[in-house]
Amino acid sequence: DRHTIHIGDITIHLEGFSEEELKLAEELIKRGIHLEEVKRILEELYR
């Protein structure tokens, strides 16, 4: 499954994450956390 996060003019595609995980990812990215770090956090929390 493919999910999309929109932040301003930026569109990020993250596959294989639930709606809850994507909301967390979006919040972290909006707070300035680097995408690679966001992915690592999600994997630690949900895998």
Rank of each mutant, 00 (worst) to 15 (best):
L45D: 15
Y46F: 15
H6N: 11
I29H: 03
R31P: 06
I33M: 12
L22E: 05
E20C: 12
I5E: 08
R40W: 02
K23N: 06
I5H: 04
I10F: 13
Y46T: 15
H34W: 06
L42M: 08
H13T: 14
E43N: 03
L35I: 15
V38L: 11
H6V: 14
I5N: 04
I41V: 05
L28G: 01
G8R: 03
E36F: 01
I12Q: 06
E19G: 13
E21T: 11
I10V: 15
D1K: 06
L45H: 14
D9F: 02
I12H: 06
I29N: 02
T4E: 12
I41G: 00
E20P: 09
I10S: 07
L28W: 03
H3R: 04
G16A: 10
H6Q: 15
E21L: 14
I5R: 02
I7R: 04
I10Y: 07
R40E: 03
E44F: 03
E37Y: 04
K39F: 13
E44D: 15
L42K: 00
H13D: 11
L35E: 04
I10E: 07
G8S: 08
D9I: 06
T11S: 11
H6M: 06
H13M: 10
V38M: 07
E21N: 07
H34R: 08
E37V: 10
R40G: 01
H34N: 11
L28V: 02
G8W: 02
I5F: 00
L24I: 11
A25T: 05
D9N: 10
L45C: 12
D1I: 13
T11V: 09
E44H: 01
L24T: 11
F17V: 12
H13K: 11
G8Q: 07
L24S: 03
E44I: 03
I41R: 02
L14N: 02
T11E: 10
L35G: 05
G16E: 05
D1R: 05
R2N: 14
T11A: 05
L42V: 10
G32S: 07
I5C: 02
H13F: 11
L22K: 11
F17D: 04
H3K: 09
L22D: 03
G16C: 07
V38D: 00
L42F: 02
F17G: 08
S18L: 09
E15A: 14
T4G: 06
I12Y: 02
G32N: 07
L35Y: 08
T4A: 09
E26Q: 11
E27W: 03
E19S: 13
E37Q: 08
D9H: 10
S18Y: 10
D1M: 01
L22Q: 09
G16I: 13
D9P: 13
E15N: 14
E27C: 01
I12N: 04
I29R: 02
H6I: 13
E19I: 11
E20N: 09
I29K: 01
E43L: 02
D9R: 04
I7A: 13
F17T: 05
E44R: 00
L42Q: 00
H13C: 09
Y46I: 15
Y46E: 15
I29P: 00
I10T: 12
L22P: 01
K30H: 08
R47E: 15
E37G: 02
R40Y: 02
G8F: 02
I33Q: 03
R40F: 01
I7S: 09
L45P: 00
I5K: 04
R47H: 15
G32A: 10
E37C: 01
I33R: 04
I41M: 10
H3S: 10
G8E: 07
L35M: 13
G8V: 08
D9T: 13
L28M: 13
I10N: 10
K23E: 06
D1A: 05
R47N: 15
R47I: 15
E19P: 13
K30Q: 09
V38T: 01
E15V: 13
E44C: 09
L45A: 12
R31Q: 14
T4C: 13
I29Y: 03
Y46M: 15
I7P: 06
L28P: 00
E21G: 15
T11H: 14
K30P: 01
D1T: 09
I5D: 08
K39V: 13
I29M: 06
I29T: 06
L24W: 08
T11D: 09
K23I: 08
D9S: 10
H6A: 14
R2P: 15
L28Y: 03
G16H: 07
K30Y: 08
I41P: 00
E36Q: 06
E44P: 01
G8N: 07
H13Y: 12
H6L: 04
E36N: 08
I29A: 02
D9V: 05
I5A: 03
E27R: 08
R2A: 14
E26F: 10
I33F: 11
D1P: 06
F17C: 06
T11F: 09
I41E: 02
E21C: 01
E19F: 12
E37T: 09
E21F: 15
G16S: 05
H13E: 07
R47Y: 03
L24G: 03
L22M: 09
